[in-house]
Design a protein around this nucleic acid. Structure first.
Lengths: 236, 236
DNA sequence: ATTGCATTTCTTGTATACGAAAATGTTGAC
DNA sequence: GTCAACATTTTCGTATACAAGAAATGCAAT
């Protein structure tokens, strides 16, 4: 059966969207705007304004907001409107703890389930991290780090686990922007990656779990410390 | 049944009253109908039919379905409708693995963070499990088991972790109904609970994690075994 | 009888309209 | 000058209307 991408009669100048429903496209767009910092935590998301901006009615936009609220990226106050969800000090720590649990499990599973191609992929991801760390650009290192963790999710052979971890990661992304200049963190992060790969390659389940959990938790601690030094008025 | 419309941020389940938003009430009602088996995995959820049943228009009902889809309890096929999400063999295993990770983390945190009142609550929950197990009614034991785990979530002092675990639990509930007659499982489950409490009371973080992880994973294994013996046509 | 196609019908997705609640602004009293 | 009560306005929540896509049905042709 051929998949025909039929166009709508209304000649809309917008770029072709893969999602069939406008609500999906809106959800992705808003998600991106929140994660990339176009909207900051606490910002009010007016339905009509956004609907006008995207050239749609309020109906699909409300649906997108509703879905984002279910994801946790948006807070929906009854009869008061939608806001970019603000995580407090404690909320962030809690999420890092949960993420550490998921990542540790993924690492442990990967240590037991990784195969030949997976080994090569993980080694390549680690090499990338090394290269970016040597470059000293913490921005590109962050991307390499992301890919590294995605490889681990994949080698855990548990799609749900990976999806949840990615979801949490996205959820925390607006706050990571706060500590862009990682300083010495890049070096220690890379060292941790090395130990993680070592454990996974050795089939050391417990070791992979331990290393990954620490790797995530320390990020939460660092972010918390960083936030604690800021004016907390804007962070709920 | 009168329903207070005040301080209802989370919403309450009620089909015919208006808590804050109809969509919330509908979400809870549908959630309940799905986990209690009124609707089975794979069932089609017709918008107009449900709207008529609840005496509302399609708009809030669509919002409820959308939220349930974001939670994972409902699958939304574009232009084809909403269905009670069907989990395959592998999906279930994956979710139990993730749940094991979260529960293990919760147990470990509880072992370190539990306080006096928490100890009493956990002991009481364990006593309840003992009593229900002695009764031999696996239905009420299931409820006591649920309360037991909720106490652990609470004593982990990580609300997010608890929420996620509860969400997963609800997500898997439709499938647990398949193995109601637990047989000898109740006895072994209780024994596991005893060891879990022992570890938590002893402040044995690693032990609590280990016991809880095994406690959850074995449930996934058992459910998988059970499903494997059934006709898989209805289970996707 | 079966297959292919066209039409019809049903359902979803989006837009618009309307009522209600909350935020806001104004005015008056103290 | 401040506060409070009232009116206004904004915007949320729901209902209804309409458009578009997919499934179902019927008809025709082989």
């Amino acid at each position: 059966m051929a998949l025909k991408a039929k166009r709508n009669a209304a000649g809309r100048p917008s770029a072709d969207e893969l999602p069939v429903r406008r609500a999906d496209a809106l959800r992705f767009a808003l998600e991106a705007d929140i994660v990339t910092g176009v909207f900051s935590p606490g910002d009010r998301l007016d339905e009509q304004t956004l609907a006008d901006r995207f050239g749609v009615s309020r109906t699909p936009l409300r649906e997108a907001l509703s879905q984002l609220a279910a994801t946790g990226l948006v807070t929906l106050l009854p009869r008061r409107g939608a806001f970019v969800a603000s995580l407090g000090f404690r909320d962030i720590i809690e999420r890092f703890e949960a993420m550490a649990a998921l990542e540790a499990m993924a690492g442990g599973l990967a240590a037991r389930r990784i195969d030949g191609p997976g080994r090569r992929a993980l080694q390549a991801a680690l090499d990338d991290c090394r290269a970016e760390a040597a470059d000293g650009d913490s921005d590109t290192y962050y991307l390499a780090n992301e890919r590294f963790h995605h490889v681990i999710y994949a080698e855990a052979h548990n799609d749900f686990l990976g999806d949840e971890a990615r979801r949490l990661h996205m959820r925390l992304k607006p706050y990571r922007r706060l500590q862009l200049r990682a300083g010495a963190r890049v070096a220690t992060s890379l060292a941790e990656h090395e130990r993680i790969v070592e454990a996974i390659f050795a089939g050391d389940t417990a070791g992979a779990e331990r290393e990954l959990r620490a790797h995530i938790l320390v990020q939460g601690d660092r972010l918390s410390d960083f936030i604690a030094t800021l004016d907390r008025s804007g962070l709920g």
